[in-house]
Design a protein around this nucleic acid. Structure first.
Lengths: 325, 325
DNA sequence: CTGTTAGCGCCTTCAT
DNA sequence: ATGAAGGCGCTAACAG
């Protein structure tokens, strides 16, 4: 049942039906009421697709994440979704499953069905990312600088965060560190590795880099490698990995923090409840999503300032870090 | 730049462009190649909206959840998203924020832009839900029976789960139970209350029902009420609430399980890492999402059997439950 | 194998 | 205040 059916049944033109549906301009109250009645009788529901085509806008944006299983991205998604809904926008989600090709093809494909795209923590490297952003513009990037400076980005100060974490651990007397590295393509991972290398060069400390991953299982298994190292404090790519490691350490009977201090990153809710509770650098993920939406909104309306918004994470010291006994 | 531009520039008809874009039928290789070149030069991207209108399908489904902050719904969303992507479908998410009116209006609205709807744990009551499902059909329901039996549903056997949990606690010697109840509109909450009432009537045990909620904070605060009760074992609406309660008990210095046993429901990842680790009834959330997609798919293709799929949760006994010391 | 024609369902000037 | 007409961009018969 289309607008034409309603028009016919009500004995008016389609234009009039359109007007009452969008309660536009002045329509004779009597006519309007009749149309409404017919709409109800026929159970008419305007086609959003047709409306979008006609108007040239979909009121929909897409958000692409590397992995919907990660609580951080979930919370960011929540922030985006709620903020977008406030502005009358719907959001399309896609999980690239950490696959670069997926990420790119999904973004390009989905853009044909929406008005803008938010790339969350894209794994794509420099040039390809710039190209992609250009292609799907308007766009916004989360958890990574936009590179080109031509697209708004909301990021976390990972370098500063790592420094703060290291300071915290230095204060506890640690000098030998290990870093359980995340996905090599992850920009935030690279940023932290570089920061740690710099710190190792500048200050009285050593860092061993251990390829690990981003999942709990990766953290769990990391002990196999980690136990051969001399580190007394370990930083992880994220809280998930840290929790996996803590689980393993508990199984192995390795006392934390007496024999090994563990520090995560992100501040996911579960970090509060692990045993021991996890020291981490936390930031507000939902707010991050909301900020990304705000930035994208400006981009869409052409009022963008294009500055990267950098969120400072805050140290949440808990019992997983301490002095050696 | 539209299909018309490409056609003009390539000196062919729009139909031909359409054919090469969708590589349909046989198109003269020379022509095809030329069209491809023009497409590249002009950077032409077909409009998905126009395509949808013409085809009458969007290849998109919507999923509506009461609260995207809940790890369970997130994982279910992940399952749906990945399974749908395999079949070439996109997914639109919406967070109703536990608001019934939202839930209904979002569902009706969003349906105009997609081909089907998945309602996750709808809070709407009986008749209104049936009406809504009818209105947005094809649809599928998660975490609740479809009521009408006219729509596929994927649910969890909450009654059986609660019984198993109670048996576990009875075995540990508990007789006085408390239940921290969730949102009154939640079907699974109601189901558990009824089951517990039945058990209290049939067997040698008592249950106190404490209105609580679904968030960690709700669980945290529940102790204010709970501490005045005689219960030695407490069941919660979900793991989140249980974790909040555990956090509070740790703060208050109440030993778990020596003074109070705590059991959750859902089996979220964090339940493994709390201190003490949480006893819970677990099920596979991602699989639940995948099943929902499969059911919806059948519904869309008209091959549906309309049976409710009931997932049996499994008891994961951990250290948050035990005998009184 | 390719072009022509006619919609998909809605919105929006422009007249009346 | 209402209607007529054209177009949004694409696809799908039907001819040729």
């Amino acid at each position: 049942v289309t607008i034409t059916d309603v028009a016919a049944a009500a004995g008016v033109s389609r234009a009039t039906v359109s007007r009452v549906v969008n309660n536009l301009q002045t329509v004779d109250p009597a006519i309007a009421e009749k149309v409404q009645r017919v709409i109800a009788e026929l159970d008419y529901k305007p086609s959003g697709t047709a409306r979008s085509l006609s108007l040239g806008i979909t009121q929909t944006v897409a958000m692409i994440v590397p992995n919907l299983g990660n609580p951080v991205f979930q919370q960011v998604l929540r922030g985006v979704t709620i903020a977008a809904a406030r502005d009358g926008f719907r959001v399309l989600v896609a999980d690239s499953q950490e696959d670069i090709e997926n990420e790119e093809s999904i973004a390009r494909d989905v853009r044909r069905y929406c008005d803008a795209v938010i790339l969350c923590s894209p794994r794509l490297d420099g040039d390809r990312l710039v190209d992609l952003l250009h292609a799907v513009s308007p766009a916004a990037v989360i958890n990574r600088s936009s590179q080109s400076g031509t697209v708004p980005a909301v990021t976390v100060d990972y370098a500063g965060g790592v420094r703060e974490l290291v300071d915290h651990l230095l204060g506890l007397g640690h000098r030998r560190f290990a870093y359980l590295a995340g996905p090599p393509r992850s920009a935030s991972n690279v940023q932290r590795i570089e920061t740690l290398q710099r710190l190792a060069a500048e200050r009285d400390l050593t860092v061993e880099f251990i390829p690990c991953g981003h999942t709990m299982d990766d953290g769990f298994r990391a002990w196999d490698d980690l136990q051969t190292r001399a580190a007394t404090a370990v930083l992880t790519f994220n809280d998930i990995v840290a929790l996996g490691l803590l689980g393993r350490l508990a199984e192995e009977g390795v006392p934390v923090p007496e024999r090994l201090s563990v520090a995560g990153f992100d501040g996911i809710q579960a970090s509060r409840f692990s045993s021991p509770p996890l020291t981490t650098m936390a930031f507000d993920h939902v707010a991050m999503g909301e900020s990304a939406w705000a930035a994208l909104r400006e981009e869409m309306t052409g009022t963008s300032r294009h500055g990267d918004l950098i969120i400072p994470p805050v140290l949440v010291p808990r019992r997983s870090t301490g002095s050696m006994s």
